[in-house]
Write a protein that binds this DNA or RNA. Structure first.
Lengths: 130, 130, 130, 130
DNA sequence: GTGGTCTAGACCACA
DNA sequence: GTGGTCTAGACCACT
């Protein structure tokens, strides 16, 4: 079960799914060309409304993380174009939260390094997502 | 005009204000003990309802960034306790967004370093926030 | 009618509702997973504004007593993490009130025991809260 | 400095003063007949408005903890009549907070015992309060 | 004069 | 149909 829904999470369900797919790509758990389950399939597995899954997929498509085709379904797509320009604003806010709470810059940077080190390490064979 | 509202932003207004105050603290633009404008004053300056400002202030108070007193109004408060444990999850998501888009780890780390370098540097003389 | 509002009470209405829900959980009248009425429904039943009920629910959510989901509404959540550290300060004040009024320590302790004995005993069949 | 004011505390200042006096009586730090500072004196020491101190004293007087005389000033008064009937409601709420958070009854009772044990032990010679 | 509470009602996001 | 956001305005508590 790679994707899951936490109802106690503040984020909307579609956002949770979107974030988990992005992190799964970063982790290397899913790769370029891997196919994602159909919206109805994933919705059934997670016991959520399929419109919710569709919204998450649509968001991922707009952001360029996946490619949707009527014939071949939904597939992961690595573009290499880098994040959108707004990305830095989000990074700035997250880092500011820690620094404004008194966390030293070196520790924040160390945390970033640790997180980055955890990316691109995992591999899985079956490619199932849920 | 340190604080401002962008209606085209998808974030709620109170969240924008919260984020801007946190970044202003990280930037060193406002410091321990500095007073923030009164809810009604800031609301008037930004042309939003005072309840919206009050919600932003309440959120900042819950997070420990400010101290609200009926006597002295609202003041910045530096705790030095570090960010909440959930903070790392948010950091992970943000960094994953860049890495999944093909941005190299070194570049991501460089971006983090740049953002951190921009903190704690600014100073302003008048202390006005809006 | 499990929840009710007393306008002559000095506590704000949202605090009364919060306290009553906490006591209802302690009493065992409502359990893990039980759904609370919707904010607008409860507001209508109690003849208060739905924002007031929403504030009570938001407080309970912050404290970890309930879980709010756009999907399933509001549900009771038992965490088992124990009270916040500040809890002892509140306990101390309450006990001091009795002791400073001359109530003997054994009697105070007996009162605590009685109150605790009354918890976790009740059960109700219909599950209606208001 | 027996009494002090914490602006970051959620409680109003007059309530903080009232609680501290009650706890000081329970602790045995101040006794029957001890005189409290004048409102103006205490207000000056704590750097608060003297109306605030007057409000705290008035509350304590209404509750029977102190006696106010134009001639002899304000003095502590132990009545031995026990707490007001509403006291149990407050106790119930505090204990419910812990039990609803999963704290075992024995632990709650142990906490009550510890707090009670801490009462009536202290003594001070000079009787100064602030 | 500050923040807090409550009301009333509109509109939106989410599922 | 649920909760969330925002507006508008009244009144109160506290200092």
């Amino acid at each position: 079960m790679l994707l899951n829904v936490d109802l106690s999470d503040q984020r909307p369900v579609y956002q949770q799914l979107r974030d988990q797919v992005v992190e799964a790509i970063a982790d290397g758990v899913i790769h370029e060309g891997n196919r994602l389950p159909t919206t109805r399939q994933l919705a059934a597995d997670l016991a959520v409304n399929f419109h919710t899954v569709a919204k998450a997929y649509d968001l991922l498509r707009q952001e360029g993380f996946i490619q949707v085709s009527r014939k071949t379904g939904t597939a992961v797509r690595i573009t290499g174009e880098g994040p959108a320009p707004e990305w830095r604003a989000g990074l700035r806010t997250v880092l500011a939260e820690a620094f404004a709470k008194g966390m030293p810059k070196e520790e924040i940077l160390a945390a970033c390094r640790e997180v980055l080190d955890s990316f691109g390490a995992s591999r899985r064979t079956d490619g199932s997502l849920a």
